[in-house]
Write a protein that binds this DNA or RNA. Structure first.
Lengths: 216, 216
DNA sequence: TAAAGATGACTGTCCGGTCAGTCATTGACA
DNA sequence: TGTCAATGACTGACCGGACAGTCATCTTTA
């Protein structure tokens, strides 16, 4: 999607541009991000960006896809497919939280796919973002249901949908001020998230999932 | 929040402005909404809007609050507080879906509170939007746990958080193209939602909640 | 030195907010 | 009942700032 030139420049310059673009797009959203400001933060001239990408929209799409790829690698990377569904879910929650605390910009980019005026992007990205997780989760629940680790009176698709929905809301609560306030309202906590305050949250959520899905 | 004048003009004109503002803000988001276009759709002069509201931001805040109020009335209105938690949840899902199918703009406004660059709005609105539901749901689960209708080995706060999270994702799936695609991915359906295709979705989701929370 | 990359001043467009003036309604008074 | 002044809602041309994308020119590289 970028022009050839983008892959010929110094790695460091390319990384810096991608990093600053992800941060700015996340902070301000697509429309409010100023290409001149991005150029200045990334330490390149505005014109150069247009040597790398056709236009702002192409840059945005590439930055998003790149962010999804990095997130997926960080979160699913070191997971053993033989672990049971509960251990894998806990791993995903924990690795996800850890990664997004360091790179909130990637989750904000994901969240912004569904905001107003972004429909043209969601058509291009939604399926490729969700397909992997959906398939993985459904396969896992089905497998462990056969192994007697998951109640067999729940619908696999609904269960996968529920678990992933909780994951999305949990992750979003780490980065969006609205969902952060909402989480605090429900769980009666305040202040910001630290590594210490995050752990019981992960435990609580995954324990609840475990408790509800495991046969009694 | 509006100026006095706004309440002196003809009811019909006021309603039309609020309706068109909600629709446009929902469709385009705050920043991309053009006041001139809004004025023309609402059948008033641009200058008039500035006789009613201090500025675009005030208008936006009022339109959002008004929308939340209308939604809450439509959804919680005809609910009997004596119903058990499962019946109330089902009622909320069904009334919510019905209302939002007719007025998707209100849910989109809600969803946009958490998109990039809207932090200044979420500080003002998040708590007042979430507080009511959170309190209601927690009280309800606690009450029915005492009555033996809810498993007593789940954490009330986490359970309320889960149920409301599912509700938010469910409702968002009715209006956001990203979440609509995601829902279809998980539940293996396609095409748009009709009243007929919505009903099994409501049943399936609320049944799953019922099944998981009810003592075995 | 030719080709590729870098640059930032410039252009055209868009849009929030203003304001000087218009017009319809109301009510006081003869 | 007719006149006139006061009120305040209504209007849209206009202003100023912001910003995406361009391009003529300069610099680096091979």
């Amino acid at each position: 999607m970028p022009k050839e030139t983008f892959f010929k420049i110094a790695d460091e310059k390319r990384e810096r541009l991608l990093r600053e673009a992800a941060r700015l797009f996340a902070e301000r959203g697509f429309n409010q991000t100023d290409m001149a400001q991005l150029a200045s933060r990334a330490g390149v001239a505005k014109g150069s960006i247009y040597n790398y990408f056709e236009n702002k929209e192409d840059l945005y799409l590439y930055v998003c896809r790149d962010g999804m790829r990095r997130s997926r690698e960080a979160i699913y990377g070191r997971m053993d497919p033989e672990w049971d569904v509960y251990r894998q879910i806990e791993h995903i929650f924990r690795q996800g939280a850890r990664f997004i605390q360091n790179h909130p910009e990637y989750l904000i980019l994901y969240a912004n796919i569904s905001s107003a005026g972004m429909e043209r992007f969601s058509v291009q990205m939604s399926r490729e973002v969700e397909k992997y997780t959906a398939d993985h989760l459904k396969r896992l629940i089905r497998r462990d249901m056969q192994r007697g680790l998951v109640r067999d009176d729940v619908d696999v698709n609904f269960a996968a949908f529920m678990v992933n929905s909780l994951y999305i809301i949990f992750m979003t609560s780490l980065v969006s001020s609205h969902f952060k306030l909402r989480l605090q309202e429900y769980l009666e906590m305040d202040g910001d998230f630290t590594d210490a305050s995050l752990e019981p949250l992960i435990q609580g959520t995954t324990d609840t999932i475990n408790n509800l899905l495991r046969p009694v």
